[in-house]
Simulated assay, not measured.
Amino acid sequence: MEGETVRIIPGPIIVGSGPSGLAVAACLKVRHIPSLVLERSHCIASLWRLKSYDRLRLHLPKHFCELPLLPFPAHLPAYPSKDQFVAYLDAYAAAFGVRPSFGESVVAAEYDAESGFWRVKTQAEQGRREYASRWLVVATGENAEEVAPEIGGLREFEGKVVHTSRYRSGEEFRGKRVLVVGCGNSGMEVSLDLCNHGASPAIVVRDTVHLLPREMLGLSTFGLSMWMLKWLPIRLVDRFLLLVAGLLLGDTAAFGLRRPKLGPLQLKAIAGKTPVLDVGTLAKIKSGHIKVFPAVKRLTTKGAEFVDGRSQEFDAVILATGYRSNVPTWLKEREFFSTKDGFPKKPFPNGWKGDRGLYAAGFTKRGLLGASMDATRIAQDIEQSWLEVS
């Protein structure tokens, strides 16, 4: 390798110390393969620890969310809280001796064909650094950067505007009229949290959305779906879910929540759009405590105008508009990762492995369960080549 400032890493370089990166490092550790985990923040799981709201709980039962090799403590509830999940991740990192290099933001990574190594450049407080390894694991995930949509009049709006990554509790908005833009799980839960803290929320539902109860027939809706898919085609499972959802929730379209034509599981498989699991928001919508509006036409100095001609004044706007991958901004590779959305081009379950020692963990659009599957496969694959070069 050219230059004396390049640090050669004997094992893989893992970019990101969220659940995906930790899982890969742990699966490698039990195979006696060292790794270097690079993390731009100063803590593990920064999205969970620093950018999530206080009332957040896992949307799926804990046994669907545990990482490889270490189950959740038995005393935790079925749906652990944000703090309980972060504590689990801390314990996970400690159990497997995963110690990331914090405060190092990867600014560029590319394959050096001459040496056969991936060269990774970082920016840290101490200056720029460069590493090289035969293997590179991209574990920055689906939610690396906030998405802030272009909304007409946003700069003219005189109230507070925050992304959900900076929202903690509805207490800050007590007595305020708040417009929540976005109707995914985060938007729905933030609206409920605002309502429970004495705010007057309204939620923008721009498109169709599948709203399902979190549990059906005393079981997790997700778990029930996975079990049924073992025996029935996806279309029949979707019909069952919508039938039960209709009985338990009623006609959601009557309250401005129109369902897509494709069933929830089909839509998830084709477009990666996750159904919303209701934790009490729909009841507040039905009672009128949470208002539903269509797409925003433009914001005004005091509120918003909507595409259906209605307008209303608001004191604050919360952007529950999600996140995106940032891989195209630093990875100099065009075959495996899409430059459009920063996801692997290969569909699940084949999107974990690229060429020349490049891997992706946590880009399955299947949550923590998908990340765990990725981690196990990546570690097994790296072990084979590790034994060949050792």
Rank of each mutant, 00 (worst) to 15 (best):
M1I: 12
G3I: 07
V6N: 14
V6D: 09
S17G: 01
P19N: 07
L22H: 13
A25I: 03
C27T: 00
L28Y: 00
V30W: 05
V30S: 03
H32F: 06
S35T: 05
L36A: 02
E39A: 04
H42N: 14
W48P: 09
L50I: 10
Y53R: 02
L56R: 07
L60N: 00
L60Q: 06
K62E: 01
P71M: 06
F72D: 01
P73I: 00
P80A: 01
K82S: 00
D90Q: 03
Y92E: 02
V98D: 00
F102Y: 09
S105D: 15
F117G: 00
F117L: 14
V120S: 07
V120H: 05
A132M: 05
A132L: 06
V137I: 14
A139Q: 03
G141D: 00
N143Q: 07
A144N: 01
E146V: 12
A148N: 12
L154Y: 10
F157T: 06
E158I: 03
G159V: 00
V161I: 09
T164G: 12
S165A: 14
Y167I: 10
R168W: 15
G175T: 02
R177T: 06
V178W: 08
G184P: 05
A199D: 10
M216A: 11
L217G: 15
L217N: 12
L217V: 09
G218Q: 04
L219K: 02
M228S: 08
P233T: 04
I234D: 09
L241S: 13
L242R: 10
L243F: 14
L243C: 13
A245N: 11
T252H: 07
A254N: 02
L257Y: 13
R259H: 14
R259I: 14
P264Q: 01
A269R: 03
A271I: 07
T274W: 10
V276A: 08
T281Y: 11
K286E: 11
I290Y: 05
V292P: 05
F293E: 11
F293N: 08
F293K: 11
L299M: 11
E305C: 07
E305T: 08
S311Q: 10
F314G: 00
S338A: 04
K340H: 11
P344V: 02
K345L: 14
F348Y: 14
G351W: 02
W352K: 02
R356L: 13
R356F: 11
G357Y: 06
L358Y: 09
A360W: 09
K365R: 11
D374E: 10
A379C: 09
Q380R: 13
D381V: 02
D381E: 13
E383A: 12
S390Y: 13
S390I: 14
